[in-house]
Simulated scan of single mutants.
Amino acid sequence: MNHSSKLAPCDVQALKSRHAEVFAPSWANRAATFGIVAFLAGLFVFGFWRLEFSFTKVLSGIGQLGVLVWMMLPPDPGSWARFLIFLNALAETVAIAFLGTLLAALIAFPIGFVAARNTTVNRLVRFASRRLLDGIRGVDTLIWALLWINVVGLGPFAGVLAIMTGDIGTLGKLFSEAIEAADRKPVEAIVSTGGTRLQQIRFGVLPQVLPVIAGQVLYFFESNTRSSTIIGIVGAGGIGLHLAEQIRTLEWQAVSVLVIMILIMVAVIDAVSIRLRTAFIGHSQRPAK
């Protein structure tokens, strides 16, 4: 049987009467939409003017960028001994990202349960934990690196602490949101059998959120491999320290080697992270026997 895709005239009239604001929007709504668009456009133009944006500078800078790229070719670390030093710094960068992310996840995990609405102790504790996470998250990782360098000195230990501190706030927030989004039915089933509060969290909430939390931690590890490069530039160890040094001494061929090493490192970690996240998600969706 063929069905016509067109509505009958009576149905169209009924839709128009029920949703008149969609078919015939008022002038007030149109004016408000136009005003918002005009305000955003004006803000965009003002930002370009206030920040002294210049297309001339961009075009001339592209030419200078081409000269810089030409100076970076061919990639050359200078010596085999220096290349080994770069490899050691690259491994140090990965270690900073791994340890910082792992420590942040271990600390943020219990805070996430305290900050979640369905697993917290009371409203006051939830409010305090939320504000604590907001305060930590409001400070960038680079600033934490500068603070920790002044506390523990230069080196990878400061980098680990910076990554850890910066991620506690964000991971804690993400963990709490994942816990709040957990299905209530398993918890209600445990409550109906007389389960304790701890058993509700252990058997009703935890199995649901663990794959989500594992995926988030893996993503942050992947992201922190780039962040640990940046904080290394300010003295927190890793390959970023060597990158800043080579740029400062205008060793552009060595800079290109470091950039290529960083790109390969990020690509490998990204590929491994995607496979692990897929494995976690597939395992969590596998029906229980």
Rank of each mutant, 00 (worst) to 15 (best):
M1S: 10
M1N: 07
M1L: 00
S4V: 00
S5T: 08
L7M: 11
A8I: 04
A8H: 05
P9F: 03
D11W: 01
A14L: 05
S17Y: 01
S17G: 09
V22I: 14
V22Q: 12
W27S: 09
T33A: 11
F34V: 14
V37W: 02
V37H: 00
A41S: 13
G42C: 12
F44T: 13
G47P: 01
F48N: 13
R50W: 13
L51F: 12
E52M: 05
V58G: 03
L59G: 11
S60C: 11
G61P: 04
G63N: 06
M71Q: 14
P74T: 08
P75Q: 06
P75E: 07
D76M: 07
G78T: 06
G78W: 06
S79P: 08
R82V: 10
F83P: 06
L87G: 09
A91W: 15
A91D: 03
T93F: 09
A95G: 06
F98A: 09
G100N: 05
L102V: 15
L102T: 11
P110T: 08
P110Y: 08
I111V: 14
I111F: 10
A116Y: 03
A116S: 12
R117M: 03
T120K: 02
F127I: 11
L133M: 15
I136V: 15
V139M: 13
I143G: 04
W144D: 04
W148Y: 15
V152P: 09
V152N: 13
V152Q: 13
G155N: 13
G155R: 15
I163G: 07
I168K: 05
L171V: 05
L171S: 06
L171F: 08
G172H: 01
L174E: 06
A182K: 00
D183L: 00
K185R: 10
A189T: 05
V191Y: 03
G195R: 01
Q200W: 00
R202P: 00
F203N: 00
Q208Y: 04
V209Q: 01
A214V: 13
Q216L: 10
Y219G: 03
Y219Q: 00
R226K: 07
S227R: 03
I231G: 04
I231D: 10
V234Q: 08
V234I: 13
V234N: 07
G238K: 04
I239H: 11
G240D: 10
G240N: 12
L241C: 03
H242P: 01
L243T: 05
A244W: 14
I247D: 07
T249Q: 09
L250K: 12
W252M: 13
Q253T: 14
V255C: 07
M261S: 07
M261N: 06
L263N: 02
L263W: 06
I264M: 12
M265Q: 15
M265T: 15
V266S: 12
A267W: 14
A267M: 15
D270A: 08
R275C: 06
R275A: 14
R275G: 14
F280R: 03
I281P: 00
I281W: 01
S284R: 15
R286G: 00
